[in-house]
Design a protein around this nucleic acid. Structure first.
Lengths: 355, 355
DNA sequence: CTGAAAGCGCTAACAT
DNA sequence: ATGTTAGCGCTTTCAG
């Protein structure tokens, strides 16, 4: 299979220094030799077959089969400057929130021959820069972030790299590059309005402690105050848990709220996971939902439709965000001019039975 | 910043052909020039600093900072034959089952400077070979599969590639290379025993249709037959749903089973998701769990502990599998001899309230 | 401890 | 339509 490598074997008149040889794996050159064409032609068959007459294509393909040749894309990437790799960064892999986005992204990208590189950024900004530098050094053709870039240094590194960047799951006035997201503040406001319209008089809040949950809280509180339900945030019964919060935290948060003895008849949970926990806890305590307690979640996880009572929540189309983000990068790679570098995909209230 | 590139600028006496130049980005050579050392020394500072005297290290690091140099690992990978990339393949990204494995993997790998490449294999074997070839062509230093390799062709391609492979979440007599998993048959058997020991007389089954769920079913049925609970599988009330199955499928599967009018007092659900759905449906219909219906899940998702009643299930340590798989690859990369190429991490029955 | 040379396997640019 | 040449940016090898 690789006994055909002998270039330089007798040449090199200067000395008999023995510099390293190939890895022994089959290369383009091997295929070219067997097929009786140049390496370039093999490369064309692989990357741009319509530039080669069909008989030649067939012939070369036969040689590829025969040698079981697998191209080395690392070499290809170095030569071409394109890696066909896209990096995605999520705060926490185990969090179900970004799964649909990731799945959509993987699928759009796969269709165009891209592969996904996954990184975990955490919720804090500890080594944002370092992680990004590691990613950049691997030369992806695009970077998708499921959050907005935090530090100024990170944003500089990103734009210096020249790599297309898509920030998602949030909105900002100063995107690094492209942006596909929605307003957490407005989502919070919408939930406040909803609860009020459902006759809730004394709203409460169960929330994660990440920046985006805080902004949902801010929108929620602002609107509650604006509509005269509260004087300020100190009047709101709040249970804060650390992100990412599993369902159990929702149960215990509702317990904690109840234990305070303050009366409330509606609760906005900053994630569906928390809401699910609240729902279970309420049921266990025979608190009627939504009659005695209205519960609203956020995210519209797949499970939300099948809880009992079915969860009223804010639908975020993670799938769409992933698809759009992937499309942005593919478009950019193929030189398409992106007109709207910022897309607000909005959100949607899904009224089910819990509020 | 990159005005220092002039090698060949006046040379090249033969002709003035203008072949492509560099990308314009800062390279190792640029740093070397600024620091007044050779490229080699800069490379050493980056990859093996203890081989360079501290003052030189500092000096070179300053130049790196000054130029905001980010190494090009693609070039490094090509030259060294090591990419510091590890590929992971999961059947479905949106499935919560493999999340812990993925997270653990990402974390162990990140600690050693590796980055994860993620691929979605699907549950069927449609283009296993093609996907693998795509992965292999990117030269990962390891491949982690969250299933056992199906086709003979795929297994050949993998072993020919010479890349370390870890299959996980299953057991087989013929692993491609390394294996970290557990026996689905035995898990099924254990559930049968558990249900019987809890006084269940007429067991039922809600199951996904993927190969591994089938093997859990096989173990379950075999044991039930062996213990005289059934004559054969046809006597078992079974609801089969397609994998990956969201919670709603569990609700509807229980409905379907109930609608048949056949009596049963215990049900093994092939995933926790299905069990959660069954639990909700049972509660909605006022079927007491576990008194009138014992429910057992599989997987021990984080939520399982916080349902009501808390879910009795089979605990699979996905985190451990991910950690071990990552370790296998790191060890292999550092030349450590792996003694046990197959590790059975087993499983554990977690008895809670639902059975 | 440091540097020069060679080459990793491929593709872009140019020439035919 | 196909081949030739140079070079992508780094690391390995070898020599000082």
């Amino acid at each position: 299979m690789s006994q055909d490598r002998q270039k330089l074997s007798s040449g090199n008149l200067v000395s008999n220094k023995r510099y390293r040889r190939g890895s022994g794996r089959t290369t383009l050159a091997d295929v070219a030799k067997v097929a009786g064409v140049s390496a370039q032609t093999v490369s064309r068959v692989l990357n741009n077959p319509q530039a080669v007459p069909p008989p030649t294509v067939l012939h070369v393909r036969a040689a590829i089969e025969q040698l079981r040749y697998v191209p080395n894309r690392i070499a290809g990437s170095l030569a071409s400057g394109r890696s066909k790799l896209v990096a995605a960064l999520v705060p926490a892999i185990a969090s179900p929130v970004f799964l649909q986005t990731l799945e959509a992204l993987t699928q759009v990208l796969a269709r165009s021959g891209y592969q996904l590189m996954l990184g975990e950024s955490g919720y804090d900004d500890a080594d944002e820069v370092q992680l990004l530098e590691n990613i950049i050094s691997r030369g992806p053709d695009g970077i998708v972030l499921t959050r907005v870039v935090q530090s100024e240094l990170a944003r500089q590194r990103l734009s210096n790299s020249g790599i297309p960047v898509v920030e998602t799951w949030d909105l900002t006035d100063r995107p690094v590059d492209m942006l596909v997201g929605f307003s957490h503040e407005r989502a919070g406001e919408a939930v406040a309005d909803l609860l009020i319209s459902r006759g809730v008089r004394r709203p409460a809040l169960i929330t994660g402690n990440d920046p985006r949950a805080r902004r949902r809280r801010d929108g929620y509180v602002r609107r509650l105050v604006a509509r005269g339900m509260l004087r300020d945030i100190d009047e709101l019964p709040v249970a804060e848990v650390s992100t990412p919060a599993p369902m159990g935290h929702g149960r215990r948060a509702l317990q904690a709220l109840l234990a305070r003895g303050v009366d409330f008849d509606g609760v906005f949970c900053s994630t569906d996971m928390l809401a699910l926990g609240a729902l279970i806890e309420a049921r266990d305590r025979n608190i009627q939902v939504p009659e005695r307690l209205a519960v609203v979640g956020f995210g519209d996880l797949v499970v939300a439709a099948d809880t009992s009572p079915a969860l009223t929540t804010v639908r975020i189309d993670g799938y769409k965000m992933g698809t759009l983000a992937g499309q942005c990068i593919i478009d950019r790679a193929s030189g398409v001019q992106i007109v709207d570098k910022t897309v607000d995909i909005g959100f949607e209230l899904v009224i089910r039975d819990s509020a």
